[in-house]
Design a binder for these strands. Structure first.
Lengths: 168, 168
DNA sequence: TTGAGCATGTAAGTTGTTACATGATTGA
DNA sequence: TCAATCATGTAACAACTTACATGCTCAA
């Protein structure tokens, strides 16, 4: 695909970070993903550095020299083409409406293979961890509008867990 | 990792299908994933066939000859080791409690980069598609206990969408 | 008899993981 | 001064996607 408009979700999220956090170094991008509470966004250097190189070649970001003390680093900024690609990804309703990957939902489809006791133990453990996640620094660190996203998501998930637990 | 206990989520879901649907052919497993409403579970033959070979080598499934008319096929069944691996994956509370990948949630973190009008248009479009998904055959096909999972999930998601839309 | 769908794969390429390497900087 | 962490990568490997190939079966 030499499409030059289609990007992956990881690439979209990276462009979003570059757009939002201004000139950012590769390391800063990496840390942002590592701080994510989701394992899906591992943010390993082996994923981020080649990705950055990739989207730079495609013309979505540009590197500018960013001296920090005695050592020179490269900070990335969004280009006009990058802005277009980001917008297209961001407002793609088809992709945004997808149900994605949910490790609990996936397991639920097979959970009648274990005893009711095991099933309930799992649901209770997940509920406890979800509740505890609200106090996790990774959810607390975000600035106000972002923090709201995480908190409403968690609150909603707890409601779903309650529904699942009640309906046997 | 020659761990022989750790499996990926796709491998776990495949083991779950084999356990639940009894002796199944590779093609039947593939179709199950293709019927999934989530793009995450693409179920391409290039993913399923090598995976099946992989977990057979690891001793999690066994193939038995399943004649179908004039043509001979292989149907897979779960082994005792496969059952152990499935159980470990299924009841792993740490992994089950992860928030996974949510294409809407991911976009929300960057949605203040676009106009309020664009943001609202996206949320409305996603809400509409989510509502329509409930009538989708892929959500309707499932047998009673499974269908319930999908329907409560969708209902809950609509509530979250309403919350997001109301809070500006 | 022919096209749709059943059924089973493989090859090439892309993307990601894990693990390693290297060196600078900084606070205790 | 020394450990942590900043900072930037790469190499080997694993897993997945896309595209293709092949042949069977069955209903119209």
């Amino acid at each position: 695909m030499t499409d030059n408009v289609t990007i992956t979700d990881l690439e979209g999220a990276v462009l979003g970070l570059v757009a939002r956090d201004g000139p950012v170094t590769a390391y800063a991008v990496m840390r942002s993903f590592m701080r994510s509470p989701s394992r899906f966004w591992s943010g390993s250097s082996g994923a981020i550095y080649p990705l950055l190189k990739r989207i730079k070649v495609r013309g979505f970001i540009a590197g500018q020299s960013a001296q920090k003390g005695n050592r020179n680093a490269t900070a990335f900024v969004l280009t006009t083409q990058g802005r277009d690609a980001l917008n297209a990804w961001l407002l793609d309703a088809d992709r945004a409406a997808d149900i994605g990957f949910d490790p609990l939902r996936t397991r639920l489809y097979f959970l009648n293979l274990v005893s009711t006791a095991d099933r309930n133990r799992l649901l209770d453990a997940v509920a406890e961890k979800t509740l505890a996640a609200g106090d996790d620094e990774r959810w607390q660190d975000d600035p106000p509008p972002d923090q709201h996203i995480g908190q409403t998501w968690l609150a909603n998930r707890l409601m779903w867990l309650k529904t699942l637990r009640e309906n046997q």
